[in-house]
């Protein structure tokens, strides 16, 4: 193990709260190792800082297995770091080298205000969901399985879009800070299923309006979102959202 020790210099964004000005702070970690996950590496640093009675680095995390979408870290200029289709919590230190300088920044977008250090407020995504990312169903008793026939192909595709974990990496990586991939994934998912039918037109109109109100940018079709998305949602979702909108216009 000792031969696998990695010395890292971490350049981390520190910011007291939303109202304060932030700055970068450098930390040297002498004994990281390649088997650590990125978050374990940060835990390790924080333990040391606390032992030294210094303030630890605040970062968001929960599941640590790529399903909750809270570990939003901009690592060396790429959302979720250098490994594609991987959330920051699933990233391992073996993708870095001994002696590396690693810059860690929070998601930067007007719609994602910084709470502290690397933690941002992503409620804007929840408000987009509340504007139409739901279906109306009876909740009194569980319906029979397979009562509504759905083509296998559509069900699979809807499932692909439904894998979005709402992490916001698409916004963070987008040169325009657009939330089109997130919103597109939600709309595309419901558009493929009969359960999404009743609210279909209202949904796309209201969710797109909400995206606008939250102050996200426009989509310039850079497709950077697809490249950083930890679950690989395709920009096909955005094309589908646009078709849905045009469909809603037809009345």
């Amino acid at each position: 193990m000792s031969s696998e020790k990695m010395k890292l210099t971490l350049r981390v964004w520190k910011q007291k709260d939303g109202a304060s000005k932030g700055r970068f702070e450098n930390y040297v970690l002498e004994d990281a190792n390649p088997h650590m996950s990125f978050l374990e590496m940060l835990d390790h640093l924080n333990e040391k800082l606390m032992k030294e009675k210094k303030e630890p680095i605040e970062f968001d995390h929960d599941c640590r297995e790529g399903i909750c979408g809270s570990c939003n870290l901009m690592i060396n200029g790429i959302a979720h770091g250098p490994q594609q289709k991987t959330a920051a919590c699933q990233l391992h230190m073996r993708h870095f080298k001994d002696g590396d300088l690693i810059t860690i920044e929070p998601w930067r977008a007007t719609a994602f205000p910084i709470i502290k250090d690397l933690v941002v407020n992503r409620y804007a995504l929840d408000r987009i969901m509340a504007a139409g990312g739901y279906v109306s169903v009876g909740t009194n008793s569980a319906p029979d399985a397979n009562a509504i026939p759905i083509k296998k192909r559509d069900a699979d595709l809807a499932m692909d879009f439904a894998t979005c974990i709402g992490c916001g990496a698409c916004v963070a990586a987008c040169p325009n800070a657009s939330a089109s991939l997130f919103t597109g994934a939600k709309i595309a998912q419901f558009s493929l299923l009969p359960q999404g039918g009743p609210e279909r037109k209202r949904r796309v109109v209201n969710m797109v309006d909400q995206m606008e109100k939250e102050g996200f940018g426009d989509c310039s079709n850079y497709a950077e979102c697809e490249a950083v998305c930890p679950v690989g949602i395709s920009i096909d979702a955005i094309a589908r959202m646009r078709r849905e909108y045009m469909g809603a216009m037809k009345g």
Partner: peptide, 8 residues
């Protein structure tokens, strides 16, 4: 940029 499939 994270590279392909990015069109950046």
């Amino acid at each position: 940029t994270s590279g392909e499939p990015s069109r950046q």
